[in-house]
């Protein structure tokens, strides 16, 4: 894993991409910090961090688009997969390398509370906890980007898909209120999910019969549930959607509350997408 980690970090810093992305990130961080804290007079870093979260939508796809897709395209994955390393070594090494690149602007951000402390009293613990949560959200977005980089050979497709998914997560609050207006909409949403699951089964088993069976059964169950109690379906949908809001828990941190649930949530997201990345690679070996 170490070999892959070092190679990847070196690759980011010998090509321009590492420097450009870090510079871009630091520029925006600096602008917000100056406007919000230095000029605006707020001692709290939470606001700056919350607004710069939006940059993660762009930063994560650009950072991660190359990670696994380039290996497939250049066929250097043959070198990695024929070497005595596990798939977790490969995915883990790459993930830690990207995190290292992301850690650079975050490390610079760590100096901000020190700067503010010179001008007034503030809680260091609060600020660093906020930065820690910020790092976790960034890490989660990067894990998502890594997964999407692994499903395609084309960097642009990987970047665009990551961006689309992160955007959906960012806007999830708004989407939830939009579509949670009635039980019918909830039913429709779940039916769509059933159809998608059917397609997934078709892809995995390569035949229509199990796919159609699964989709039909799922739809019957949904209709029955709807007839029994429509409101239940609505609340289920709301619950599912709120689980997908990646960025909302940070509001707690920005407000000064250290939400342990959120930390666990982000760690789960990271592990889930790393696991999915490993599975994608494993699957490709068996079913090219």
């Amino acid at each position: 894993m170490l070999a892959i980690y070092r190679r990847e970090v070196r690759s980011y810093f010998t090509s321009a991409i590492g420097y450009i992305l870090i510079a871009f990130y630091l520029l925006l961080l600096g602008i917000y910090f100056t406007a919000y804290n230095l000029n605006g007079g707020y001692t709290d870093l939470g606001g700056v961090l919350y607004y710069t979260l939006l940059i993660m939508l762009l930063f994560s796809p650009l950072l991660t688009m190359r990670l696994l897709s380039e290996e497939r395209k250049q066929r250097t994955d043959q070198l990695l997969l024929c070497a005595p390393v596990t798939l977790w070594d490969i995915v883990g090494g790459k993930y830690l390398a990207v995190l290292t690149v992301f850690a650079v602007p975050v490390a610079v951000a760590c100096s901000c509370p020190l700067l503010l402390a010179a001008y007034g009293s503030k809680s260091m613990l609060l600020s660093y906890a906020q930065i820690f949560a910020y790092f976790l959200i960034g890490a989660a977005c990067i894990a998502i980007g890594l997964f999407f980089s692994g499903i395609t050979e084309n960097q642009i497709v990987a970047a665009a898909t990551t961006f689309a998914v992160l955007l959906c997560c960012y806007l999830m609050d708004g989407i939830t209120t939009l579509i949670s207006s009635s039980a019918w909409v909830a039913l429709l949403a779940f039916v769509l999910v059933a159809l998608l699951i059917g397609l997934l089964v078709r892809y995995m088993t390569r035949s229509w019969r199990p796919a159609i069976t699964v989709a039909a059964v799922a739809m019957c169950v949904l209709v029955i549930l709807f007839i029994i109690n429509g409101e239940w379906m609505l609340s289920a949908l709301t619950a599912v959607l709120s689980a997908l809001t990646l960025f909302a828990p940070f509001e707690d941190f920005a407000g000064g509350i250290f939400n342990v649930n959120a930390v666990v949530y982000y760690l789960s997201v990271i592990l889930l997408f790393l696991f999915l990345s490993v599975q994608t690679m494993e699957r490709r070996r068996s079913n090219v």
Partner: peptide
Amino acid sequence: IGYLPELPPLYKD
């Protein structure tokens, strides 16, 4: 095993 595939897996950078 040492393997040389059809397209050598080289990191061009």
